[in-house]
Structures are given as C-alpha cells and as structure tokens.
Design a protein around this nucleic acid. Structure first.
Lengths: 192, 192, 192, 192
DNA sequence: AATGAATGAGGGTTCATTCAT
DNA sequence: TATGAATGAACCCTCATTCAT
C-alpha cells in the first residue's frame, strides 16, 4: 500500500472514531507511519484529506449499496432486505458504537463546510433515489413522489437508530428499527 | 441576566451551531461579553460549561416534552401530535438547519466523554419511556415491550429526519417524516 | 484562631512543602478556609503573606534557638548538643523530607527578592553569631573571627546535610553530619 | 549551534538563575531566539526541557568531577584539593551568587517530581562514592562505611556553604568552608 | 518523492489582584 | 470586617501549514 492510501486509511479510521476536527494531522501521521512531508506532498491541506476520505466512503457506498445491493436489475424485496442487513451487519461487528461513518460527518460538517455538505448530500440523495426506485418496483401503484418520501423516511429511521445506538451503546435500537422496516417491506410486498 | 446565565446562553448557541469542540472558550467569552477569568470563576473547565449547557437543554426537554406534552394525564393521540409539532416547529423556525441540539451532541460526544453520554442517554431514555406510555394508552392491547420498541423507532425516525434536513438544508425530510408518523398514530387510534 | 493566623499557618505549611511561587493564593484560601476578601484585607499582596510567614519562622528560631538554646547564659557544650538535637529532631519527625523551612526559601528567594533575602540573611547571621559565642565559650583561646568561621561552617554542614536528605529522601546524611559535629564539639571541649 | 542546543543552553542559564518553575517557556523562547513550535518540536514538554538541562549538567559533573578530578587513577590528596578548587572557582567567577546549579534544583524539585529527584540523587550518590574512594586512598585504614560518611559530610558542608553565600551574597562562607576542608584533608594525609 | 526544521496563532487554564457592595 | 464577582496577563501546550534541502 502506498503512502497516499495509507494516509487515507489511517485518516478514515480516526475520523470515524473521533470526528474530523478532533483528528489532527499529527494523529494521522502517527497512525499512517508517514512523515509530514509526504502528507503535504499528497494532500494540500487537512480538508483535502477529509474530502479524500469522504470520497472513498462515497465511492464504496455507491458501488456496494447504490450500484450493488440496490442496482436496477435486482429484485426489489430481497434488495431491500439486503440493504437492511448491510447496515445492521456493519454495526453488529463493532465493539464500540461510533455511529454511522457518513452520519457522523453530516452532523459535524454539514453546516461548517459546503464542500463536505455537497458530497454528503449527493451520496444521501443517490441512496434515497435508488431506494425509491426499489420501492416503486415493489409497489408499482405508488407515485414516484410518494416512493421518494417513503425512501427518505426509511433512511431517516436507519440513521436515527444508528444515532440511538451511539448514545445507548446498545445495538438494540438498530435491531428493532431494522425489524420494523423489514416487516413494512413484507407488508408492502404482500399487499400488491 | 447574570454572568453565569449569559455564559450558558452564549455557549448553548455556539455549541448548537458549531459543536462542542469547535466552540472555543474565547468564542464563548466574546459572545457572552465576559472576561476570561469570569468564565473560570463560574465553571471549572470547558467541559463544565458543556455539561451545564446540556443540563439546561435536558431540563427544558424534561419539562416541556417529558413532563409537559407527554405527561401522564394528557390524552394520548393529541399528545403524540403535539410532540411531532413541537419537534417540527423548532426546525421550521430555523433559517439554517443546524440539526438537533441533542442529536448533534450525541453524535459528537457519546464516544468521547462518558459524562456527556450518560446525560444524553438519560434524556433519550426518559423520552422513549414517556412516549411508550402514551403509545400504550393509545393501543392498550400492545405489550409494554412492544410499545418501548415502537417509541424508540419513532424517535429514531425523527432524529434521522433532522439529520437529513441538515445535509440537504431542506426541511422536507422532517415534514414528511412527521406526516408519516402522524398517520401511523391515527391508524393506531382508529384500530383500537 | 483568627483569620490572619489561619492564613499564616496554612501558607507556612504550603510554602514549606511546595515553595513560595508554587503556592497560589487560591491554595492558601482553600487550606485556610478563608475567602478572598479576608485575605486581601489582612495582607496587601502575596509577598506580604510570604514575608509574614518568614517573620513568624524567624521569630520562632530567634526565640527557640538564638535566645533559647544558644542563649548567653547556657553552658556551651550542652547548648551545642541541644542545637544539633533541635535540628535533627525536626527532620526525624517528618515522613517526607521537605528540607529546611528556611533553607528552602533561601534557595528559592534570595536572588529574586531583596526583602526576603534581607530577612533570611538576618536570621542566619543571628544564628551564626550566637553559635560563635558558644564556640568561644567552649574554647576561649580561639579568636572571635575564627569562632565566627567555625560557626558558619557548622551551619553550612547542617544546611547541606538537610539538602542531602531531601535528594536522597533518607535522613542518614543528617544523622551522620550531626554525629560528626557532636564529636567535633566534644573534642573541642576535651582539648581546652 | 542548532536549535536544540540553543534551547538547552538558554534554559540552563534561566533555570540556574530563576529556578525551574519560575522559568517560563516564553522566557526560554526569547532567550534562545526560537519560536514556540520549535521548542515543542524538540521537547515534548517543559519538564522534558528541565530534564535535558539536568542531564547536561549531570553529564558535565560526571565527566569533569567524578571521572575527571576524582578519577580512580588520580593521587588522592591533589584530587581532593582540585575538587575543592573546582567548586570554589565556579562561585568565585559569579558576579551574583545564584547558588549551586544542582543544589538549587534539589531544593526546588526533589519533593515535587520524582524524575528530577532520581536524576539528582544519582549524581549526588556518584559524587559521594567517588569522593569516598579518594578518602580511602588517602587513609587506607578507615572503613569503607566511614569513608562514605565522611564524603557525604564534606559534600554537605560544600552545599551548605554555597547556600550561605546565596543568602549573604558574599563568597566568604564558601572560602572558609573550603579552607577548613582543605586543612582536614591535609591532616588526614599527614596522619597516615 | 521525501525529509524534518520552523512558524505563529490559538487552544484551555491559572494567576495575583481589584472592585462594588 | 467580609463577600465574591470581575479583570486581564501569563501559563503550558497543540495546531495546520510552510520552508529549505
């Protein structure tokens, strides 16, 4: 792994656990075992690193979630179940609950830096849109607008549940939310 | 207003808009128009200020929400509607969407400082419990456990929706989530 | 005990253990259980407190040592032995060895504040002179100048030994120095 | 001279004259003509600087005194005389008498910071041991233990005399102590 | 590509002292 | 006598960034 990748990997982990502002350049240097020179050779500023980390996550979500699990050619019901499992599994694997890698940055950076916000906005919009498409596939009668609303509410429930597991340090809220959403999907499927 | 109150008020506003870590003692000093020594006369540390701010919000929510809107003697359906309006109205009044005063701190501080986390945990638990009681009043047949789960999911949806309005800088997600939750409540009421 | 005395007592203990500069007004306030107002009512500055503490110690040494143990009418040999015991006993009673209450302040303040230095100088001179008188009583043949020199060297040995017990945190060096000085005195006495 | 050395040199001088606590980082910065960041680039804390200064002095004393003047292969009597001269000459060169660079730190730091104390303890022990060896070379009949005691008392006398020149701002006490110790050595040499 | 020395603003905190009551 | 609120300079330290090599 080259220096640039090492830096991004280290920064990603640190930002996830401690937040963007609380992660110092020195922390990243130490974690990546990289000198100050290299860091400023590959990135022109700390913000640049933050953006690079964000873009990496966005790319992953785009690939795995938007163009993977929720891809147009996937059958709707299993896709929705898979999406819920994808979210739940990530948090099940964590010993300590640091919240959502994207949600955390939304909370910290959205009103502080427009570049961060735009990137996050695009990702969340892409997710919402892909999810809305699936919901429409599942229940073709509903209007596009309504599907969009439903998709957004599902995502909100997931994000909120992840926030709750962070305060309570207990995964139960997410388990329950996923259960509830799974049932909603099944009902929708049954009702068509 | 005395100095201590001025400090808390200033800090509360700054922490809400910029986060706890990003709010410097100097910022608070300037906003409260108070000297540095004064600040450390009333509070032994920055963390102390943060905790005081949090306790003030917790006290307000406890009074307005837990012991006000969701008080035991309030009829269930209007109480739930009032709760949703209480949340929605707050965010409707904001020009820029800084998210939830509590949710932001949950996201930033839960895994960084146990004292913050415990306070936030208690508030969210109190809210959940009070909401669960209302839900049971509305639909007496459901089990206490189920009501608790439902309550938590409702709160999750609200928190998540508030996070989404922060990324999108558009109140729509919260409007929609509140609409959706209002309908759920009406259905529950009708179904008993 | 009135406030003024409480302040001096508390300050004396703190200055002995931590030094003058390292003892803060707040420390003294806390230890004396006295408000800020009282402190600045009785003393016009921190230096004033330090000087008062010093004067108290000087007065005690003057009374106990210079005008007590080494008083003109005391027989020389027992006086010298008593002086050595007076020094040794003080340090034997300490659990942790903080050094000499006077020596510490000499080391810290002599070149920083002339008012402190003068006070300390006077005390040490008085001690030296009183001791020289005793030495002359013991061995009348020696010149006044020589007695003065001998006195100063004895005091030096004691002060140095107390410094050594502070580094080593072991009272042995002082025990040994006192032993040595006691023998010197006995020899002087025998040789006359 | 590189920055690190400049910092240590400046700090050494300041600590000698004003003490460790009374020497501020800003003072060192100004004296070394070095920026604040630079200081924390080379040293991780103020304590680190203090320890580095101490280690430099310890190294010098070890080299010049313990392994130089008092080296095993040096004839005893001249070595002792040289040691006394080494001490006296240092203080003769000073315009103002700031005391002993080591003794001052012993007095200030021994009971405040164990890391300082250990370093100082080691130096003083090394000096005592080396001096005891010389004393035994001079008077082979005396027991090792007795030599150790005698060595410690000699060092005590020197340290105490240096403390006295600090209060009195007059080098006489040290001159006299050295004279006295020189005679003691001569007597020992004559008596074998 | 890479090093690490240098910068200086700003972080939270403590300090001795003064003021109004 | 006594209180405690107010002041602002100074404390040690960390920060993101730049420079010379």
């Amino acid at each position: 792994m080259d220096s640039k990748a090492k830096i991004i990997t280290a920064a990603r982990q640190l930002i996830y656990q401690n937040g963007y502002e609380a992660t110092s350049i020195s922390d990243i240097m130490a974690a990546a075992a990289v000198g100050k020179g290299q860091l400023y050779y590959y990135f022109k500023s700390k913000k640049d690193i933050g953006l690079a980390v964000l873009q990496q996550i966005v790319a992953e979500w785009d690939q795995q979630l938007v163009h993977g699990i929720l891809a147009a050619d996937q059958p709707a019901a299993p896709a929705l179940t898979a999406m819920l499992a994808w979210v739940l599994d990530f948090h099940r694997q964590q010993d300590e609950h640091y919240g959502c890698p994207i949600g955390n940055v939304i909370s910290e950076m959205s009103t502080k830096d427009e570049d961060f916000r735009v990137l996050l906005d695009q990702l969340m919009t892409a997710w919402t849109t892909a999810l809305a498409v699936k919901l429409q596939q599942l229940t073709p009668v509903i209007a596009a607008k309504e599907a969009q609303v439903k998709a957004q509410t599902i995502i909100a429930t997931l994000q909120g549940a992840i926030l709750l597991i962070k305060v309570h340090q207990d995964i139960a809220p997410l388990e329950q939310a996923v259960n509830y959403l799974r049932q909603s999907v099944l009902q929708l499927e049954a009702s068509r």
